[in-house]
C-alpha cells in the first residue's frame, strides 16, 4: 500500500473511532439523564453520531478494510485511533448497576468535541478526497444541532449555581489536560496535508480554541496537554473496558448473522 493510501486510511479511522467512542459513551447514558427531555435529546444526538461513525467505517470498507461491523467490533485497542479524552468513562460505576455518571463531564465533553468536530468537518468539505468531502457535507447540517445543544447546556450551567459552575470548571480543566491528541492527525499528518486531504492542523486547532474562548468562561490559559496519544494507538484501560462491552455479544460468534 502506498503512503498516500495508508495516510488516508489512518485519517478515516480517526474520524470513525472518535464518533464510535462518543456514541458508545452516549449510549451508556440512555435513560439516566437529569430529566426525560434531556434523555430523548441526548439519545438523538448519540444515534446521529453513531450514524456518522458508520459513514466513516463505510468509506474504509470501500477502501478494502473490511466490513463495518468487523471494523467497529474486532479491532484491538492498539489499532484504535480515537482521541483519549473521548474514551474516558462517564463517571464512576457501571451503566447497568450503579451509574454514578457526571453530567458535567457529558456537557463539557459534548461541547468540546462537537465544537472541534464542526471545525474539522468544515475543513473536510474541501478535502481532495472526494468521498470525505461528500461525507462531511452530509454530516454538517445535523451536527449543527448537536453543537447548539451542548452549547446551551454549557451556557446554562456556567451561569447557575456555585456547584454547577465548579463542576463545569473542574471538567474543563480535565478536558484541557487530556485533549491535545484530539487536534492531532497522527503519524501521517505531513502526507495528509501535502495530499490536500486535510487543511493545516495548526489552523484548525487555532479555530477551535478561539471558538471555545468566545463562548466559554474559565478557559485555562496554559497549552493543551495529553496523557497519551490516541492517534498513535496509545490508550487507557477505559478503552479496553469499552471495547469489551461493545463487542460482548458480537464476540460470542463474529461470523453469525445477528
Amino acid at each position: 500500500m502506498d503512503k498516500r493510501n495508508e495516510a488516508l486510511i489512518d485519517l478515516l479511522y480517526q474520524c470513525a473511532d472518535d464518533d464510535l467512542l462518543v456514541s458508545f459513551r452516549g449510549s451508556e447514558w440512555l435513560g439516566l439523564a437529569p430529566h426525560i427531555e434531556a434523555d430523548v435529546a441526548f439519545s438523538s444526538i448519540t444515534q446521529n453520531t453513531m450514524g456518522h461513525a458508520v459513514y466513516f467505517y463505510r468509506l474504509l470498507q470501500e477502501l478494502g478494510e473490511g466490513d463495518v461491523d468487523v471494523l467497529a467490533h474486532e479491532r484491538p485497542a492498539v489499532k484504535r485511533r480515537n482521541a483519549v479524552y473521548l474514551e474516558k468513562r462517564n463517571g464512576d460505576g457501571q451503566y447497568d448497576e450503579d451509574p454514578y455518571f457526571d453530567w458535567a463531564l457529558a456537557v463539557v465533553r459534548g461541547y468540546f468535541y462537537e465544537t472541534y468536530k464542526r471545525v474539522k468537518l468544515i475543513s473536510f468539505t474541501n478535502s481532495s478526497y472526494e468521498p470525505l468531502a461528500t461525507c462531511a457535507k452530509r454530516i454538517l447540517p445535523e451536527q449543527r444541532y448537536h453543537l447548539a445543544y451542548w452549547e446551551e447546556w454549557m451556557k446554562q450551567l456556567q451561569q447557575s449555581s456555585p456547584t454547577a459552575k465548579e463542576k463545569i470548571r473542574t471538567r474543563i480543566e480535565e478536558a484541557w489536560s487530556l485533549s491535545l491528541d484530539l487536534v492531532d492527525f497522527g503519524q501521517y499528518e505531513q502526507t495528509l496535508l501535502i495530499e490536500g486531504y486535510i487543511n493545516d492542523p495548526n489552523e484548525l486547532k487555532q479555530q477551535w480554541l478561539s471558538e471555545l474562548q468566545s463562548k466559554v468562561k474559565d478557559l485555562p490559559t496554559r497549552p493543551l496537554e495529553q496523557v497519551k496519544n490516541g492517534r498513535n494507538g496509545e490508550h487507557t484501560k477505559d478503552l479496553d473496558e469499552a471495547l469489551t462491552t461493545l463487542s460482548e455479544v458480537y464476540r460470542t460468534d463474529p461470523v453469525a448473522q445477528w
Partner: peptide, 10 residues
Amino acid sequence: PKAPSLERKL
C-alpha cells in the same frame, strides 16, 4: 451498548 452490530445498536 452491547448490541451485536452497529445497525442493532442504532
